[in-house]
């Protein structure tokens, strides 16, 4: 897996970009920009589902989610750049593994929202509360993204031995 990721990084030019003097911090800045777009849109929508900001129409806030999707795309792209440039620093890292797990849970939670609750939430009046299920989805989403940020910060703290991960 490490070899495959390294080969991908070299063949696409990612490795070269990331190893320029300012490559890594510029991509890190873009990663945080994507995160801010995500938190400022999806995070606010989640808070609204939980009952904060009563009076703001759910459908209005939902219009911002498109920006969150752009933020997510920036994060995935820059995340792949980090991962493929230094795969051994990420693949074996428990903080990275936890981060990916919670991104996956957030994704499943989003699918659950759009399959079961989205239409109902958009129709809910601005002064009314959404259903408990919608609140739970909002809470799970917010918690997942906070854990993703915490794990993102933790990645730089862990330099685990390469044999840490039993399935890598």
């Amino acid at each position: 897996m490490i070899d495959y990721l390294s080969a991908f990084s070299s063949s696409t030019g990612i490795y070269t970009i990331m190893n320029t003097p300012w490559g890594w911090p510029i991509v890190e800045s873009m990663h945080f920009l994507g995160l801010s777009l995500l938190i400022g849109t999806v995070g606010i929508f989640d808070l609204r589902l939980l009952g904060i900001g009563q009076g703001i129409a759910y459908s209005d806030l939902h219009k911002l989610v498109k920006i969150g999707v752009i933020g997510y795309a920036i994060n995935v792209t820059t995340g792949v750049m980090f991962l493929t440039t230094a795969p051994d620093q990420y693949i074996y890292n428990p903080a990275f593994q936890t981060k990916i797990l919670f991104m996956f849970i957030a994704g499943l939670n989003m699918v659950w929202f759009y399959q079961t609750t989205s239409a109902q939430v958009k129709k809910t009046a601005a002064l009314d509360n959404v259903t408990n299920r919608a609140k739970m989805i909002g809470g799970i989403s917010l918690l997942c993204w906070i854990i993703v940020i915490v794990c993102g910060r933790l990645i730089t703290y862990f330099r685990p031995p390469y044999h840490w991960c039993w399935f890598c």
Partner: peptide, 27 residues
């Protein structure tokens, strides 16, 4: 920082109409 910057982006994108118009006051 992510929350503060995110809120500012959301408002700025609404003002330049990158996102469809929505009521700002409740924000």
């Amino acid at each position: 920082m992510a929350f503060v910057i995110g809120v500012n982006f959301a408002i700025a994108f609404r003002l330049v109409r990158i996102v469809p118009e929505f009521e700002l006051k409740p924000f």
